[in-house]
Simulated assay, not measured.
Amino acid sequence: MPISIAVAMLLWGKVRGPEPVRILSRLAMIVFCQVTAVVMVFVMVNNANLIYGSWDDLLGTGNHVRAVPSVPPADPAAPGAATGTPAPAGDAKPPAKALQSFKGVDDPKVPNDVQKTELKGQLSGVDGEVLVWLPPQYHDPAFKDRKFPVVELIPGFPGSSSTWYGTLKVSEQLKPLMQQGKVAPFILVSPRTLLLGNSTDAGCTDVPGKVNADTWLTRDVPQMVLDNFRADPSPDRWGVAGYSAGAHCATKLSLAHPNRYRAGVSLSGYNDPAVEKDSLVGKDAKLREANNPVNIVKTAAQPPKVALYISGNKGDGYEDGQAIAAVAKAPTTIQVQETTGPHSSDVWKNMVPGVFEWLTSVIPAQP
């Protein structure tokens, strides 16, 4: 029994004073009990699904954008990809190595072997936590000279960097499959994507004057992984996966950056950024058009060498996958899988093993 109800029951018969005072006092007790009950239910749901990583995230008071610098192009052949604005010209100086310290995640739902670091994005101006899990082979002496493939894991909106590990149980499900050789030994990386303090979805996009979310995810975070772990630098050995709003990110980032990702996984995603009502990108006509995966495919100078796995129920991502498949040309490949069930973590959690077996077929373990 919540403490508020026990206190109300204890004090109910002890209220003194005129009748109006007694009535108001008891009404206040009832309201207090209702409020605490609602808060308790919310906390239980949040703890179960790891929707918000902190009270700052919930209240919209956390801001992880330190600055919004101009971002030099990563690849002269693809300046300004998916940002809606051209990147500045000039030679990009390689950033200093992002050597980081790591510690455990202070969350009982997240496995003890997941590591966390606080990263200051050198190119993006974004600051945020990044959670990393290493496959069982990583510390095996037989693999000491081996470089490992990487998959970035993008949560939905709102969402926490812990959700893939704590709710979808990605590392717990994949560890035995990696040990059995059914899934490649991927390094799993989940960065913060809730970046703006007013509970606005950045849409994994570089928005001039607001946030460099694309650069954070596709350059700062990967560079940190390369600087601190035996990660394979080849784009053929990198993938990105997401669910819901994170699925939209995974699709568009992989298509816009074939120089970083070989594969993308979308679980119940969408193409139009405006589907997310709190999307900063969806409110800008130019950015909205530029960040629709269908338009990215249509306007690409050449079809990106990317394999996509897109799943969703009818009305919840399935038709979006078909729309991309209709305009894609080789070497882009699209596998669209119809699913059943609600738009929920229970559905996505059950899909994790199959999704990573598909990723292994695209990014196999090195012999």
Results as ranks from 00 to 15, higher is better:
91 D>W: 14
141 P>H: 13
99 L>G: 08
95 P>A: 05
73 P>T: 12
114 V>I: 08
125 G>E: 00
113 D>Y: 10
141 P>F: 04
76 P>N: 10
23 I>L: 05
143 F>C: 02
68 V>T: 11
53 G>S: 01
95 P>C: 08
101 S>E: 14
127 D>Q: 13
39 V>Y: 09
147 K>Y: 04
67 A>W: 03
43 V>W: 12
18 P>F: 10
113 D>S: 14
31 V>D: 02
146 R>C: 06
74 A>K: 14
80 G>P: 00
122 Q>I: 11
48 A>F: 10
98 A>W: 04
39 V>D: 00
90 G>W: 06
112 N>A: 15
112 N>H: 15
73 P>D: 06
94 P>T: 14
140 D>Y: 06
100 Q>W: 09
89 A>M: 09
139 H>K: 15
53 G>D: 08
106 D>C: 03
103 K>T: 15
43 V>L: 14
136 P>G: 07
89 A>I: 06
62 G>Q: 15
143 F>P: 09
133 W>H: 03
91 D>L: 13
24 L>W: 14
28 A>K: 05
93 K>A: 15
44 M>Y: 11
50 L>F: 08
127 D>L: 02
125 G>W: 11
65 V>P: 04
88 P>K: 03
85 T>N: 10
111 P>N: 07
76 P>W: 00
22 R>W: 12
144 K>F: 06
123 L>V: 15
127 D>C: 06
72 P>V: 00
117 T>L: 07
144 K>M: 07
105 V>M: 05
37 A>W: 06
29 M>D: 02
65 V>D: 01
80 G>I: 11
116 K>Y: 07
107 D>S: 07
126 V>E: 01
118 E>Y: 13
24 L>I: 14
101 S>I: 11
